[in-house]
């Protein structure tokens, strides 16, 4: 049995659940309180990766002996380990498109969504919610992760970071349109529904549902794609039970 460890249903946690559901793979979910993340991670120190992953502390997938982190690589792992139904293109060029898009989503879009989502979640939260969670003191976490948590709990994001996040989400919407334009649809990479659709959908969800406190105007093609993903049986069944929430995600690229 596979166990998905999460601290809230972040977009990344949802992407793993959606992939498992699309493949019809049974799994259990174990919830960890984000206020005690560092403590929760102490159960995963047998390998180096979980405590150092750039995406943030969770989700983790435990599958037999393997403890896997970084959601896009978990998605690719699931397609490698359980190939049916295939959720990647069969050809090398299609796989390249999937990976090039994953890089864009992980490096540009995920930090932007997390910044806006976290700001909205914590800015108006009562002070008791924000006081002294253990990860701020946990030397087992990399310093930049502790800083990310401290920043999230300190208050709303700076105007600069807000602008930068909005700019990146604008690029994201353009990219969805252009991918659909290149592939001819109905899915991002063409006629096969793939991990790219899942990875983009979980990031598009808060944008399309206007839950980030910012208005965006997705194009008609992207809006149709979004509805088609949301309408899939596996996607609808997962989303019926879960509400998306935001936690400090990957940092914005430091080179700009």
């Amino acid at each position: 049995m596979k166990t998905l460890h999460i601290a809230d249903w972040t977009p990344q946690a949802l992407s793993v659940a959606l992939t498992l559901a699309e493949k019809g793979l049974p799994f259990e979910v174990e919830h960890h309180d984000w206020r005690a993340l560092a403590q929760a991670l102490e159960g995963f120190t047998a390998t180096l990766e979980p405590g150092n992953t750039l995406e943030g502390e969770f989700p983790l997938l435990v599958d037999g002996d393997a403890t896997l982190c970084d959601s896009h690589f978990i998605l690719e792992y699931l397609d490698d380990a359980c190939p049916e139904p295939a959720l990647r293109p069969d050809d090398a060029y299609g796989q390249w498109r999937l990976q090039a898009l994953a890089r864009f989503l992980g490096e540009r879009v995920a930090p932007a969504i997390a910044s806006l989502g976290v700001s909205r979640r914590f800015a108006d939260a009562p002070a008791t919610t924000r006081e002294e969670p253990d990860m701020l003191r946990a030397t087992s976490l990399p310093r930049e992760r502790r800083d990310a948590w401290a920043a999230a709990l300190a208050g709303p994001i700076s105007p600069h970071l807000r602008d930068e996040s909005q700019r990146k989400i604008g690029l994201f919407l353009e990219r969805i349109e252009s991918e659909l334009d290149t592939s001819g649809g109905p899915w991002l990479l063409g006629t096969r529904f793939t991990l790219s659709d899942i990875a983009a959908f979980v990031l598009a969800k808060p944008v399309f549902e206007a839950s980030l406190g910012v208005d965006f105007a997705p194009g008609a093609r992207a809006a149709r794609w979004f509805e088609q993903v949301a309408g899939r049986a596996a996607v609808a069944s997962v989303l019926a039970d879960q509400t998306m929430a935001f936690l400090p995600g990957p940092e914005h690229a430091r080179w700009g």
Binding site: E49, L54, A66, L68, C69, D80, G106, A253, R254
Partner: peptide
């Protein structure tokens, strides 16, 4: 599959953490 996952994890760690810092 788990080894392939590990290969990808380390490539990202190099691409988005180790290399950009050394490069700066």
């Amino acid at each position: 599959p788990a080894e392939r996952w590990k290969m990808r994890w380390w490539m990202k760690y190099c691409d988005q953490y180790y290399a950009p810092c050394a490069s700066m």
